[in-house]
Amino acid sequence: MRPHSSFGGRHELGQNFLHSDATLHTIANLTRATTGPILEIGPGTGAVTAQLYRLGRPLTLVELDETRIIHLEHSFPRAQIRHADVLTSRLDQPVIVGSLPFHLTTPILRRILRAKKWQNAILLTQWEVARKRAGVGGSTMMTAQWAPWFDFRLIERVPAHAFTPKPSVDGGILTIDRLTTSLVPKRHRSDYQQFVRAAFTGRGRGMKGILTTMNLTDRATLHSTMDRNDVRGDTLPRDLNPDQWAGLYSALSTTAKTTTKNPSAAQKQAAQKQNRQKQEKGNTMHNDKDHKNPTIPAATGEIPTIAEKPVITGELPIVGGDRAAKKLEASIPGVDPEAKAKSHDKGHLQAERGFMPQHAKASQPQPRWNLPRRRG
Rank of each mutant, 00 (worst) to 15 (best):
P357R: 14
Q126R: 15
S168P: 03
Q269V: 05
M207F: 06
R373N: 04
Q277P: 00
H188S: 14
G98S: 10
A115R: 09
A144R: 11
I176Y: 01
R203S: 07
K281V: 00
F17C: 02
R54C: 01
R10A: 14
G56T: 13
P101M: 03
R353D: 10
A22D: 07
L100M: 05
T88S: 13
Q145N: 02
L30P: 06
I122G: 08
Q350I: 06
D243M: 02
T201C: 10
E40M: 13
R110D: 04
T295I: 13
S139E: 14
R228Y: 02
K346F: 08
Q274R: 15
E338V: 09
R114Q: 11
R78S: 14
A50N: 05
P159T: 05
P237K: 06
A47Y: 02
K309A: 09
L349F: 13
V169Q: 10
W127M: 11
I296C: 12
F7P: 00
S250K: 05
A246K: 05
R133N: 06
G42K: 08
L61E: 02
R82W: 11
T284C: 06
T313E: 10
P101A: 03
L109G: 07
Q272C: 03
A339M: 15
G321W: 05
E66M: 00
H291N: 09
A130R: 00
N29G: 06
R110Y: 01
R373L: 11
E63W: 04
R228S: 11
N262H: 13
L64E: 01
T254I: 01
I176G: 01
P159I: 03
S20L: 01
A271R: 11
T201G: 09
A341C: 06
Q193N: 04
